[in-house]
Simulated scan of single mutants.
Amino acid sequence: MKTLFVSYRVTDLDRSLALYAALGYGELGRVETGDGARLVILKFPDEPSASLELVHRPGDGPVDVGSGFDHLAIQVDALAATLERLTAAGLDPGPVQHPGGPQGPKTSWLTDPDGYRIELVEWPSGQPDGMTAADFA
């Protein structure tokens, strides 16, 4: 088994698509499900398949993120350059943080139009991509 993608319900599809496009996601496909509802499947250019689905159901009203969801984590190659690009796109990423100390990963936080939190992570030089059991040894 493997995870296919994460799916978020969004209030304003165009506004959400603009933010996720600024992050670097590209549209893989869309499905119209009736009553104005749409599913938009996204992925990063280097990903082999979908990683995020935005679900827009206008008849359901505004999204309430609530307290059960925490955040989406996205690995970036160069956090400083990513933050500059996002700021130039009109977004407001948070400051760089070092949660594991100065030799650990660099992070920054961003919130999408519906309140979903996004953690941007730059691994230290030499760290393998992704998170594995070795990170907890």
Results as ranks from 00 to 15, higher is better:
31 V>C: 12
54 L>R: 03
68 G>K: 02
45 P>W: 01
131 M>F: 15
123 W>H: 15
43 K>L: 02
74 I>H: 02
6 V>P: 00
64 D>V: 14
68 G>S: 07
20 Y>L: 03
64 D>L: 14
1 M>R: 10
86 L>T: 09
66 G>P: 03
54 L>I: 04
21 A>C: 00
91 L>I: 02
131 M>I: 15
103 Q>T: 10
68 G>C: 00
98 H>S: 04
94 G>N: 05
115 G>S: 09
7 S>A: 14
120 L>P: 04
24 G>R: 09
97 Q>H: 10
65 V>K: 09
43 K>M: 01
126 G>E: 01
105 P>R: 08
35 D>K: 14
33 T>D: 11
48 P>K: 13
93 P>Y: 02
8 Y>V: 14
116 Y>F: 15
46 D>G: 12
63 V>P: 02
75 Q>S: 13
98 H>T: 09
65 V>N: 08
66 G>H: 01
87 T>L: 10
31 V>A: 14
24 G>C: 08
84 E>L: 11
120 L>F: 01
107 T>V: 10
91 L>P: 01
101 G>Y: 04
7 S>G: 13
128 P>W: 04
79 L>E: 02
118 I>R: 01
19 L>V: 13
57 R>S: 11
98 H>Y: 07
132 T>S: 15
35 D>E: 15
107 T>D: 03
109 W>A: 00
73 A>Y: 06
101 G>W: 04
109 W>D: 03
36 G>L: 10
25 Y>P: 01
32 E>L: 08
76 V>R: 06
84 E>H: 09
121 V>S: 01
116 Y>I: 10
14 D>A: 15
18 A>N: 08
111 T>E: 05
30 R>W: 07
137 A>P: 09
68 G>F: 01
14 D>Q: 13
62 P>G: 11
4 L>F: 08
58 P>I: 11
10 V>N: 06
87 T>S: 14
115 G>Q: 09
9 R>N: 08
96 V>P: 00
25 Y>Q: 02
132 T>K: 12
115 G>Y: 08
13 L>V: 03
52 L>T: 05
76 V>F: 06
136 F>V: 11
27 E>W: 06
125 S>K: 15
21 A>T: 09
59 G>P: 13
65 V>L: 10
98 H>F: 03
116 Y>R: 09
10 V>G: 06
8 Y>W: 15
56 H>M: 06
90 G>F: 08
75 Q>H: 13
97 Q>M: 12
17 L>S: 03
30 R>V: 07
48 P>G: 13
44 F>V: 02
134 A>M: 06
132 T>C: 10
58 P>N: 11
14 D>L: 09
120 L>W: 00
51 S>M: 06
34 G>P: 04
110 L>R: 00
25 Y>A: 05
106 K>D: 01
21 A>P: 01
122 E>Y: 02
